[in-house]
Design a protein around this nucleic acid. Structure first.
Lengths: 232, 232
DNA sequence: TCTCAAACGAGAGCGCTGCTCTCTCTTGTG
DNA sequence: CACAAGAGAGAGCAGCGCTCTCGTTTGAGA
């Protein structure tokens, strides 16, 4: 008998799949990037071979975790922006989203490392991840585009952009359907890269023995990014 | 018989140690972060247990590689700055050093990932690395300090710095013996973090399907950092 | 309602890993 | 010249990812 379009078996299967991922995430949190499929199976009280009914390989499990992490990261960015009240305070929105991303990274460092750290084994997951991966930059770009539409954008400055890079930026804007001109897109992209750098720098221990007031330091940088883009 | 203060045995030992590291680096380059001590031993035609005469554990081998990588990275920065002719073109020097760091990272991606990527197994190497690790930022800070001394620094701007962060920056400047005032140190530190972000962003695949003209894109960002610091 | 193929779980096993221990041979120094 | 320290090899342990085989469960079609 079908229930809600899916059989009971399928439902149980989905639940166990989720439970495996949950246990894997838990182990990842304490063990670092070295995820042991056998340990996950042990945790769940099942034979290691049984896990292979749900994930064809350890890498496939990791891929699933990566996709989930991308989704969680994107969701964090979206809700942070949505919850920000003063919609025309674009710099404030940028900082709020940046903070949310950092905080998500701090609560789930190994998952952040999974998606944005060094590629794990030989190479990374296939490009099933492109969808969820684009949620975060989409939020960032959205803030900038809205600011531009509201006329709240400081006049463009920044280094000159070589002609060929400019055409590539234009092509990029077209393919991802982003309505920003080349200099603005360049500044936004650079700010995104900078944001990623600031979070990774802290998370991967480069700030150790240098700065303890990390939240304040991060805010300083996030405000710098907003200023660099031209958000007011 | 002692030779140059070290016995022959010690010399041979040092050579073999170096050879092990070399083989490990080679394997790391093709295999990613998963370094197999047994494979290294196999490559060298020796029993895996013999390697333990030279490195107490796989982690210790990795630590040695990390220290070497930090040193190589620092050396790349230093020579790039030293070779730059127009000493008062501080923005040019910054960009030259940034380029050198990126190029080193591109030629040895796994070694870069080792030192600046996500911490590998459970946690990272001990703090034997602090010395070599500081060579790169020292070069960057040096350029800024020289520019300031030459009066080639644009007037400070940037986000406000909270008082407590400011005192911590002052303390940091004191402990690492850097002669930069708080706002300038903050801008330099932020630029360093940004530089790290730009390199990692490219190296870890975040630029894939977005920008192909990577050298030009990197230059654009490097120039932006110099401008943000105030280098002329 | 019964049947049977598909789904599932467990266990054994393969080759790999890091690491330890023991045994033998070499080496350089007192 | 003796002998302890250094060095290499090999066996072995527990763990890993993954495969295969063998019973059991289950749910959909006859």
């Amino acid at each position: 008998m079908a229930e809600r379009g899916t059989s009971i078996r399928a439902r149980v299967r989905a639940e166990l799949t989720e439970e495996i991922k949950k246990a894997a995430r838990a182990q990842l949190a304490v063990e670092g990037a070295n995820l042991s499929l056998r340990a996950v199976a042990r945790e769940l009280g099942m034979a290691s071979s049984a896990v292979y009914r749900y994930f064809a390989s350890r890498d496939e499990l990791l891929t699933a975790l990566i996709i989930d992490a991308y989704d969680a990261l994107g969701a964090a960015a979206e809700t942070a922006d949505a919850r920000y009240k003063r919609r025309t305070d674009f710099a404030g929105r940028w900082v709020a989203v940046a903070r949310a991303l950092r905080e998500w990274a701090l609560t789930a460092p190994s998952e952040y490392a999974l998606v944005l750290g060094s590629p794990v084994p030989g190479y990374r997951a296939p490009r099933d991840t492109t969808g969820p991966a684009s949620r975060t930059p989409y939020v960032l770009v959205g803030i900038v585009a809205e600011a531009r539409d509201a006329g709240q954008l400081a006049p463009a400055d920044g280094p000159p952009i070589p002609a060929r890079l400019r055409t590539e930026l234009a092509a990029l804007a077209r393919t991802v359907e982003v309505d920003l001109d080349e200099p603005l897109l360049a500044r936004t992209l650079a700010a995104w890269s900078q944001l990623y750098g600031a979070i990774s720098f802290e998370l991967f221990g480069q700030l150790d023995n240098m700065i303890d007031r990390r939240a304040e330091w991060f805010d300083y940088q996030a405000r710098g990014m907003a200023a660099q883009i031209g958000l007011c």
